[in-house]
Amino acid sequence: MKLLKRKSDRIDELAAGAGEGGTSLAADALKRMARSPVAVVGAGVVALFVILSAIAPWIAPKDPFTRYPELRSELTPTNIPGPMPGFLLGSDQNGYDFFSRLLVASQQTLIVGVLATLLGLTVGMIIGGLAGALGGWVDSALMRLVDIMLSLPALLLAISIAALFREGSQWTVIIAVGTVSVPIFARLLRGAMLAQRESDHVLAATALGVRRRTVVFRHMLPNSLGPVIVQATLTLAAAIIEAASLSFLGLGDPSPRRAEWGLMLAQAQRHFEVKPELAFYPAAAIIIVALGFTLLGESMRESLDPKNRR
């Protein structure tokens, strides 16, 4: 939750790094990242997570949506079966194969995280881009809107948005989490664009009579993307945690046809004394994945920072 609480000062600090560091220097940044153990660990975790979630349905040993009679037969309020042959981590509270569900849930988590981040990124970039390119009253109006959103705690805002929908679904979570990340992207891009507007090369392009549209899209925008890309990685980590939180609070899709770590965690609560692993594994998975994205994002930010460039 902390991750989304980065407010203006943090954002402006990131935006300040926007002056330099563009696509042509991506190779340079990659090289620097390859030397940093933090980056390698982060990238490793993220890669593992992405690959696992992509192939999860095929490598899951059992069907995650079938209640197995051999598990159900032993299921009592005081006993949830542990590991047994064919069922690596035993049963969950409903008689599903716990390991398979855990594996397949990674897919759901990734989809929700990526879509929510994309939503926030797209809307945020449109708002920030307009504010940064046009300036004046457009900028003032859009930024006040963003300020209002930033003034509310992220999770509270996400819950309020999710509560607007009659019934919880995957899309509720995506829209709620995505909306919450809009102001960060908007502020970040706007700050970077404003810095670009004052830069020498934009003045030089203007002095050459380049059209306004071209100045914005070819000279200002590409030079402003660095911090936005970094923030997308960090936001992905936050989105995964937030999505899990919303599911945990019962604002997601409650259907057992869908496996999701936050929901698994929420439902495991009631059975914590019987089988604590039911809560432990989903929680650990959320933490590791969020940590992976955070490490990757932070190391990206460091290597893209012009102050660190030699």
Partner: peptide, 25 residues
């Protein structure tokens, strides 16, 4: 009209060549 003139009739060379060139193009 001014934009049509700049670059065509009036050229300008700036002081700092590094920051006056777009780094990503």
């Amino acid at each position: 009209e001014l934009r049509n003139r700049r670059g065509r009739d009036l050229g300008m060379v700036f002081q700092d060549p590094m920051s006056s060139l777009n780094p990503v193009i």
